[in-house]
């Protein structure tokens, strides 16, 4: 059974159709990339899946359950974790506290006024930190972390509620190339180990082709191609859209960076 089913998703802003009749499925344990040039509708699409935007038409189903109209925080509670293009962390807290917060929220203890927050779910939080290889940084203030570490921290936070689906918006944006590879390898490993399904958008085509099981290509709001890396590389329409012909994906990426 598919973890995520998207059917006929459509959204327009004013007269502009941002996403037009997009449908796709995401299977259990699948690593699915959503790519497209700037303004193709990736973020709009993403935000309809995670509940921040309400589509004009269409359906989003998580494990068969309709998500349209469900608030973002409730979608989270149904097992959808997410990371952000620009990291969003609690800067006044330590690394481990950020994860503990996610765990506290997941366990429904956010309104506990008497326990010490720092003593709750510590073991679980440490385990998650080990997962992203940050155990040695547990007590550091989040505001002191390098950007790459923040990205890894966000990944751990997203994994805290043990989600079935992970939505990652530009997971490697703003990172140095070597770090990108490391982060995506880590993500791929976790996906494989934990059986999480991932939908991600990405600019870096190396990352996409190296890790995605399947790729969706969006242009002007519509889905123009779908398939494996090989399929997409060879797709003339995609090349046309991305490059106006002639150049390689590597150069396209350089333009975007």
């Amino acid at each position: 059974m598919n973890v995520l089913e998207v059917r006929g998703l459509t959204k327009s802003f004013g007269g502009l159709v941002a996403v037009n009749d997009v449908s796709f499925d995401l299977g259990q344990g699948e690593f699915l990339a959503l790519i497209g040039p700037n303004g193709a509708g990736k973020t709009t699409c993403f935000n309809m899946v995670n509940g921040y935007l309400r589509p004009d038409r269409g359906a989003v189903r998580l494990n068969g359950e309709d998500l349209i109209g469900v608030r973002p925080r409730d979608i989270v509670r149904k097992g959808v974790g997410r990371t952000f293009q620009i990291t969003r962390t609690f800067l006044s807290m330590t690394v481990i506290e950020n994860i503990q917060m996610a765990l506290i929220s997941h366990h429904g203890r956010m309104f506990d006024m008497l326990s010490r927050a720092t003593r709750l779910y510590r073991d679980e939080a440490e385990a998650l930190l080990r997962l992203v290889s940050m155990a040695d940084q547990a007590e550091r203030a989040c505001s002191e972390l390098a950007y790459g570490d923040l990205k890894r921290l966000e990944l751990a936070v997203a994994l805290a509620p043990d989600p079935t689906l992970l939505l990652m918006d530009e997971p490697t944006a703003g990172m140095a190339p070597s770090e990108r590879v490391a982060l995506m390898e880590l993500t791929a490993k976790i996906v494989a180990d934990r059986g999480v399904s991932v939908l991600f958008t990405e600019h870096d085509m190396d990352v996409v082709f190296a890790h995605a099981h399947r790729i969706l290509v969006l242009n002007r709001g519509g889905l123009i191609a779908e398939g494996t890396g090989e399929d997409i590389r060879g797709n003339a329409l995609v090349q046309e859209v991305y490059l106006g012909g002639g150049t390689s994906f590597g150069q396209a990426e350089a333009d975007h960076a």
């Binding site: 506290e97 929220s105 956010m110 309104f111 506990d112 006024m113 326990s115 927050a117 720092t118 709750l120």
Partner: peptide, 9 residues
């Protein structure tokens, strides 16, 4: 120092 206070922050 509780989850509630941490949540506010």
């Amino acid at each position: 120092h509780s989850p509630f206070g941490y949540g506010l922050r």
